[in-house]
Design a protein around this nucleic acid. Sequence first.
DNA 1: GATCCTAACTTGACACCGTCAAGAAACAAG
DNA 2: CTTGTTTCTTGACGGTGTCAAGTTAGGATC
Lengths: 195, 195
Amino acid sequence: MTGKRDYHHGNLKEALIDAGIEILDEVGWDALSLRACASRAGVSHAAPAHHFGNVKGLQTALAAVGFTRFRETLSEFQEAAEPDPKIRLQAAGAGYVTFALRHPGLFKLMFGGADLDYENEVYREASQSAFAQLGEIVAPFLAPESGPEEDYRLRVTIWSAVHGYTHLLLAGKLWEMSVSDDGLSHLPDLTKLVS
Amino acid sequence: MTGKRDYHHGNLKEALIDAGIEILDEVGWDALSLRACASRAGVSHAAPAHHFGNVKGLQTALAAVGFTRFRETLSEFQEAAEPDPKIRLQAAGAGYVTFALRHPGLFKLMFGGADLDYENEVYREASQSAFAQLGEIVAPFLAPESGPEEDYRLRVTIWSAVHGYTHLLLAGKLWEMSVSDDGLSHLPDLTKLVS
DNA sequence: GATCCTAACTTGACACCGTCAAGAAACAAG
DNA sequence: CTTGTTTCTTGACGGTGTCAAGTTAGGATC
């Protein structure tokens, strides 16, 4: 497939993204760099800049991949649950936490405050798709007469609770967690927030 | 006071911490480095390592200062509010958000996932003091017969909601926020979580 | 098929970073 | 005054992002 050697790799951009995801998953957030991706992909140290411009571009591209997979995880958890809206809401929260624990490096890149290129088209599409998934989950709890302001407020409330819990969990701030825990035992009861 | 020149600065450690706080507030998280602190304090590039060991030590010391000021901000907002527990709870949440918006660099250092030296004594004391402040705020809502498990769960729930909202706000994910906003208009109703 | 053009990638350099080792200066104690 | 210790400097190393210049491959055009 990609038998090209030396110059003209063929699909270097994808190879670099794969390398970046691997580094995030196998080594960690700190190890992600343009040069490390280049090295893992077997190209020179300046090759990535040609495809991503700068390190922000690389991080943005990786975050976009992350948001796509993130949305998929939310969908899976939601659809695997019984078709009761409240159960599905809590299941989506569990999916949120699970994704973060499986891919902490990627999660940190997506939400950790690295200044990404928010104007990037691929990134915008992927992240907005994930947020749309959230809206779908919350929709059943909106009163019929409620407007977009209430919709937005409810989404922010739910999202804040899940995200805050996940972030504190990853940051090691919930240190009193029981041993051999999947991280879900203290996930707040989201159904309280939608009534 | 500190008129010493050349060798033996006198109180270099405090000067370096001040320099670090300045950098975080005036320039940003990205600009914080051992060498930048040294430069701003007017000493050689390797001087900070002598006091903090490595960059993790510097970050931990700065985070400790941050937690102390964080606790003070929570106290101020709480005590400025009317003595109703629910009003004070929401006021503390507003204090949480306000601190983060005033000192985003420091907040990110404290909660942004930088791997700090959690064994550091000064850090432990400062951070646990802040968490104790949270416990004080939540205490009035605990049922008399509730045990430590319920206490912990309630604290995690409240903290998750406020922290998640703050983090999403800082990460720029709440982009639909109204203009000229103090960031508080969509803070979730915390009282819903304590009933 | 030869030529030109352009995109893809390499090479080399620069400044910045953290970290270590060695040395010099100032203070403290004898 | 001498000795020892702490504090800070100097210099070096490998790592990083980024830029400029050069090299190569592939496609288009003639």
